[in-house]
Each structure stands twice: as structure tokens, then as C-alpha cells.
Write a protein that binds this DNA or RNA. Structure first.
Lengths: 371, 371
DNA sequence: CTGAAAGCGCTTACAG
DNA sequence: CTGAAAGCGCTTACAG
């Protein structure tokens, strides 16, 4: 440890220090070092002298002071839930975040992360984030009400990804969820499945409802009877998927297993597969499973998961682009940005979906008695 | 969109605004609202009036101004590589990050992320991060030289996780990598394997070398011949693991497949398994595979991966604790903190390791000719 | 118990 | 081409 043991914090060199040493005003130093937009130009000789003394004194501009004076932080915020209840990773969040970090980095913006344990309708946390340290905020899959949206500070630009409610004054980046649900259900039907259930997201959430609508439409269009017994509610997490599937299995001992289950997220699908495995039921031999999202997870399950691909990384990318554009051009009317921005989705066919078993298998004990 | 279309950015309410409206000084407002440590107490009636007008005017303190005046940002930085070359997620990084976010959140600190595409020995990026917007910085698996470390600003506290070099003035959080490599190699030997290779991290990196040392020691201690042909170099990523294994297989057509491979990271192990699968070789039937890290990945591969568990989440936790303590108590000498902090590791036995095949399988075409 | 002053380190007009 | 002044919105001593 060569550094001084007494960690008396040393003061960083300031503009004034450099100015003093170079024999010019702090302002002149600011002009050459921090590329101020002052119309004036500093003479080559002074410029050189300033640069030298700055290097000598190891000067670096204080970002906070700069931000306060220029009213620009060069930092965007991202708010979302990183960890599904407990330690379970939220891959959905991470892939979007990765896209955001990418374009923010390219545009030389920093990113500060505000992590929530869950989205509550309370707008207070969001308002606390907008305390002058970020230029704008991206909300990832927020659950907020319209009234909540009205309480957002008017001077902060917002972009929301998969907002479950059209927030006033917020640009929304979404994907065509209903279409994805419709297409993946059709995919299951095309493979010969008719007895299909849907493990849904939390009822009431826009994203969950859209998937349910797509599912129902595909079922009905295929001339298959639809009723609510086909819907099993869960949250979007693996642990909830596991619990929901377990409960279903417990309540249906002796019944025929459905031929296929469409899960509202990959995370749910993983939990669902775990619950099936606990009873020795095999995917896709005994039941086909489809997910939604195409996160990293979908490629590492056994078997790999048929799912609906949402371009999460690109959506993060775009969200950051839009936000930065709004920050840089506050004069442009909000209505100049398309809103919402909707990304197309795509069914990715993998090994978790196969043709239905010749004779549908039955869960443990007793004989029949329909669901 | 109910908000004004002309996005003329509205100014946020300031202390002065509130003071004016309440008929007191800005300082009085500051004292009651932002809990300044002023010895003085504001009278209950004034206090109440101030609180009411603040609520009325929707006042929130400007974090930047506050930071500049108090010289405390309440934000820590995290620097590391999020994405292994390209889109591959760095789960190692994410798990540590998650631990950091957790304790930072609990201690009401924000976290700003500085993402690098790779660690170069250039100290410039790090210095740029220390521009007065963070109170301290956590470096994740940095590759820096001692000289580089000397160029760090003396007034910023640093903590490094798995630093590949003892940086001056930096507290290091590590794990017992050599021990982990030793134990997992012994685990392979105990299962009956003798012909074992090690797919290493980048040579020269401390972390990689430590694992090599542990591996070699276990091999030699077991009375097995050791030479450098047992070492296959890769970086820590999946794509590099895939390439390294592919090349090895190509160069050894006709030779006997090793009985086991110990990979220096889970990511490498995944790539290695992919390369084996390309040739129809099965894990663990044809070859046993072990990884290192026990990231999320290890539980989702087929088969699940035997690996060395590093408590990444806890390490992130601790790193944040240490950093925040140093920020809050700059007067405490650096030497008061244990340095390095070393976490124990543990071998996690899963399905990717089994007993060696009775007759070791042979890769495609021609007959023998030893390696 | 409360206020007037100075200052955090920078930038932005405005003069010369 | 360069400098002196004012200000960004807060906090920290220091007076009363």
C-alpha cells in the first residue's frame, strides 16, 4: 500500500487552481478544457499553456458542478425490478438493460440504476429518482395507473417499456404481445394440440391480458371450445409458474393432462417444467410447453423452449434512443415521436413442443372424471 | 396525452421558492426539509408552515446541488464488462452486480453503472468515472497493472472484486480460487479420472493462473504426470470455450478423448459442451466436464454442471459494504480494513461429472497416434 | 430559534 | 481574444 495511510481525502484540482497556475482566468481554462460553447477562441499560446498546466496538475472537471451549471447531467436513469422474488434473476429486465447500456454508452451517457423490489402504484419512488441527477428516466414494465402518471415531474422526459398502462406524457415502447400469443397458440394447434391451457400473467396487467386475448382468439378461431378453465393464473416468475402448475396438478389428479401449455413468460415455463418433472412427467413427450420472451433462459432449458421472441435488446436500444433524443431536443413537441412504438414478435420453434402423445397420459392415482 | 404539447421544460421548485412562499429563509427550509445537521431547531409552527408550502409547491431537493454543496453524491459506481464479446451475458458480472445493488439499495445509495467492453490496462476510463459524480467505485474483475493503480485519483475510495493485480490503495475482495481448482480436480480424480485436461482462462491473468496452480497441484499430488499439453488456453467466455475445444478436437482427430475437462469458468464449460455436442460426444458418458463460478448458467445446462461455487452475490454485497464504510469514514486508516478479503469456495457436484467410460471413446476417423 | 453570507466547481451571457 | 460577474440550488459555519 504505497498510498498515504492517513486517508485524509485530498481535494481534486479545480478550474481555479489551473487558472491560477497558468496565470489566466478560470473561465479561460473552462473554455479550452471543457469545450465550452463560448463564441470566443483562446489564443494558441495560452491554450497550450493551459493544457500543459492542466495535465501537470492532473485536472479533471467535476461532473457534479458541471451538471449544476449546465443543467445537464449526461446520465439517464433506468427503473425496474431486477430480481424476481428473491434471488431469481429477471432475464427480461437484464436483456432490455443491456440494450439501454449499449446505446447510452455509445452516446456517452451514463446510466444509473434504480432497482425496485416490485412495482407498486405509488408514484413516490419515481418522483424521488427525478431529483436532478438524471436527465430522463426509462421505466421497465411498470405497473402504474394513469393518475400516477400525472404525478410525474413535468420537466423530466420519460420512456416506458411494456408499460401496463398508457401513462400521460410518456413514450411507450412495446411489442405486439397479442399477436405473439395468437401465433404461438396457432403453432400449438398446427402441431395437432387441442387440449391447451394457458398459464397467464397477473390478471389485470395489460401485458397479461393481451396474451390471454391472443390465446383465446386462436383457440376460438380453431373451433375449439374456450372457457376460463383453460386459464391458470400466475405472476411472471419461475417460482410462481412452479406453484401454479403444482396446484393445477394437485387439483387434477386422475384427470387427463392437457396436451400443451402456453406460458405467459419463459420464467413461468421453467417453473412449469420443474413442477411437471417432479411428477416424472416429460416435456414434450407427455405435454408440450411454450413460453414467451425468448430470454437467455429459453435456450438453456431442457428441452429448449419454443417461445415468442420479443426483441428485448433492440427495445432497450430504442428506448434509450428516444429518451436521449427527447433530452437533447426538449423543444420538439411530444407528438413528433410515434407513440407507442410497437415491435413485431416472432414464434421460435424449439424442442419443447412436439406432436401430442398418441394416448394422452394420466396423472398418478385414480381413474377419470373430467376437469 | 394530457400534458402540455409544448414541452417547454418547467423549472422545478427550489428552496428559495418555498422560502419566499412561506416567508422564511431558504436556509430554514433546508433545515426542516432536507434534515440538515444544523444544531438549530426550527419552531414547530414555522416548521409546519414550511412543510405545508413545500408540499403545496411540490418541492423536491435537487440532488446535484445538494451533492455539490455537501460533497457527497450518495452514489457509488460499478465498473465492469457486462457482455462477453457480443451479446453473450456475463452472468459472473450480473450476480456480483445484483449483490451490490442489494446492499447499496438498503443503505440508500444509488448505483451508476460504467460498462466497458473489455478491461484494458489504460487507467483513463477509470479516472474519467471519478469525476465527482460518485463517492466511490467498485471494479469488477479488472485487468490493470500496479502502475495503472497508482494513477487512480487519491480522493476516491476503491474496492475491487477479483482484481487480477494487487492495486495500490484498493481493497480487494476475492475468493480462494486456487483451492477451488484444487478441490474440483481432486473431485474428478476421486471419481476415477486420470486423463484430465484444463481449459484455462487467459494466461497471465492472476485468476487464471491460480486455477492452473490448483489444477496442477492436484494432478501432481495424485501421482499423475503433468505437462503443459494438459492446458488449453481460452478466455473466460462461452464463445472462446467453444473455439478452444473445437480446435483441440480438430488437432486430436483419432486420439483418445480425455476422460475429463476442468474448465476455468462456467461460460467456458458451456462452450466446451457445445463443441463436444457438435461431434456427437456426450457429457458425462464420453467425457466429464467441470466448471467454475456456479453462476445461474451452471444449473441450466444439459446436464447440469459440476462446478466450484464462488459466493458471487455475497461478494458483491461485501464489496458494497466495505466501500460504503470507507466513504462514510474517510478518517479511518486504510489498514483498518482487512485486505484482501477472501471468500471460501465449494465444489458443487452435479450431473456433468460421472465415472470414466469403461473404454475411452475415440474421436472420428483414423486410428491412434498419441497426442 | 432564525437569518445573512460565503462557498461547492463549474458555465453562461455580457463586457471590454 | 480574454476577464469579471452572476448564477446553477443547495449546505455549512457564523452571527445574532
Amino acid at each position: 500500500m504505497t498510498h498515504s495511510n492517513k486517508t485524509k481525502r485530498v481535494r481534486a484540482t479545480t478550474l481555479a487552481d489551473v487558472g491560477l497556475a497558468a496565470g489566466v482566468s478560470a473561465m479561460a481554462v473552462s473554455a479550452v478544457l471543457n469545450g465550452a460553447l463560448t463564441s470566443s477562441r483562446i489564443a494558441p499560446k495560452t491554450r497550450k499553456r493551459i493544457l500543459e498546466t492542466a495535465a501537470l496538475l492532473n485536472y479533471r472537471a467535476n461532473g457534479t458542478a458541471r451538471a449544476l451549471a449546465s443543467r445537464r447531467m449526461h446520465t439517464i436513469g433506468v427503473a425496474g425490478v431486477v430480481d424476481g422474488n428473491g434471488l431469481e434473476f429477471n432475464h427480461y429486465f437484464l436483456e432490455i438493460l443491456s440494450g439501454i447500456l449499449m446505446t447510452a454508452g455509445r452516446r456517452e451517457e451514463n446510466t444509473t440504476l434504480f432497482t425496485l423490489h416490485e412495482w407498486s402504484p405509488d408514484p413516490e419512488p419515481i418522483r424521488r429518482f427525478c431529483d436532478g441527477r438524471i436527465d430522463g428516466l426509462i421505466l421497465i414494465a411498470p405497473r402504474l395507473t394513469v393518475e400516477t402518471g400525472r404525478m410525474f415531474p413535468a420537466y423530466t422526459p420519460f420512456v416506458a417499456v411494456h408499460a401496463n398502462c398508457p401513462l400521460p406524457g410518456v413514450i411507450n415502447v412495446e411489442s405486439d404481445e397479442e399477436d405473439g400469443a395468437y401465433e404461438v397458440t396457432r403453432h400449438l394447434i398446427a402441431r395437432g394440440h387441442r387440449d391447451i391451457i394457458h398459464i397467464t400473467g397477473p390478471r389485470g396487467l395489460l401485458g397479461a391480458e393481451r396474451r390471454i386475448r391472443g390465446f383465446e382468439r386462436a383457440i376460438v378461431n380453431a373451433g375449439i371450445h374456450f372457457d376460463s378453465s383453460r386459464l391458470v393464473e400466475a405472476s411472471f416468475t419461475t417460482s410462481d409458474g412452479r406453484i401454479a402448475m403444482r396446484q393445477w396438478l394437485k387439483a387434477h389428479v386422475g384427470d387427463r393432462l392437457p396436451q400443451a401449455a402456453f406460458c405467459a413468460s419463459d420464467a413461468i415455463a421453467v417453473g412449469c417444467m420443474e413442477a411437471l418433472a417432479e411428477l416424472g412427467l416429460r416435456v414434450p413427450d407427455d405435454i408440450s410447453i411454450a413460453g414467451f420472451d425468448d430470454t437467455f433462459t429459453a435456450r438453456t432449458t431442457v428441452p429448449q423452449l419454443t417461445t415468442v421472441r420479443q426483441p428485448l435488446w433492440s427495445m432497450g436500444n430504442r428506448a434509450a434512443e428516444i429518451l436521449l433524443d427527447r433530452i437533447e431536443h426538449p423543444e420538439r413537441p411530444l407528438t413528433d415521436t410515434p407513440n407507442p412504438v410497437v415491435f413485431p414478435v416472432e414464434v421460435i420453434s424449439r424442442a419443447s413442443v412436439a406432436s401430442p402423445p398418441v394416448a394422452a397420459r394420466v396423472v398418478p392415482p385414480q381413474p377419470a372424471a373430467a376437469s
